[in-house]
């Protein structure tokens, strides 16, 4: 599927951030947990799966199969990892947001 330009959706951004941050196994459940932990948002697992797939299609993530556990009934996980393109994209997007944000008068956040 062709990406419509360089925009990153809101959930996409969140998921990308999670993948970039998490050090342990990055897969559906851990991303969902992390997002909930950070934002309090309870995203449905299927949405997370979809976004992860989309990001992989766009080239920002790679994935591999690995790690079955008993809780999962012996089923393996699909583990995701940030690509160089993904990292660049993330930095690009955040930088752009920061730029715009800096121009808002009277903001109280400290930007470094």
């Amino acid at each position: 599927m062709n990406t419509k330009g360089v925009y990153l959706g809101e959930l996409e951004e969140l998921v990308l951030l999670s993948v970039a941050t998490l050090s342990e196994d990055v897969y559906g459940v851990t991303v969902k947990r992390y997002i909930f932990q950070e934002t309090g948002r309870s995203v449905n697992i299927s949405a997370i799966h979809e976004v992860l797939k989309r990001l992989q299609r766009k080239g920002y993530l790679t994935s591999r199969i690995g790690g079955a556990t008993k809780t999962r009934g012996g089923r393996r996980k699909r583990l995701f990892e940030l690509t160089a393109a993904g990292r660049n994209k993330l930095e690009q997007v955040i930088t752009m947001k920061m730029q715009m944000y800096k121009q808002v008068p009277n903001i109280s956040i400290k930007l470094t």
């Binding site: 897969y27 969902k32 809780t71 999962r72 089923r75 996980k77």
Partner: peptide
């Protein structure tokens, strides 16, 4: 199927 169902099982637990 495997990855989806695996995630669902984990959440279930």
């Amino acid at each position: 199927l495997e990855e989806i169902q695996g995630d669902l099982y984990e959440l279930y637990a």
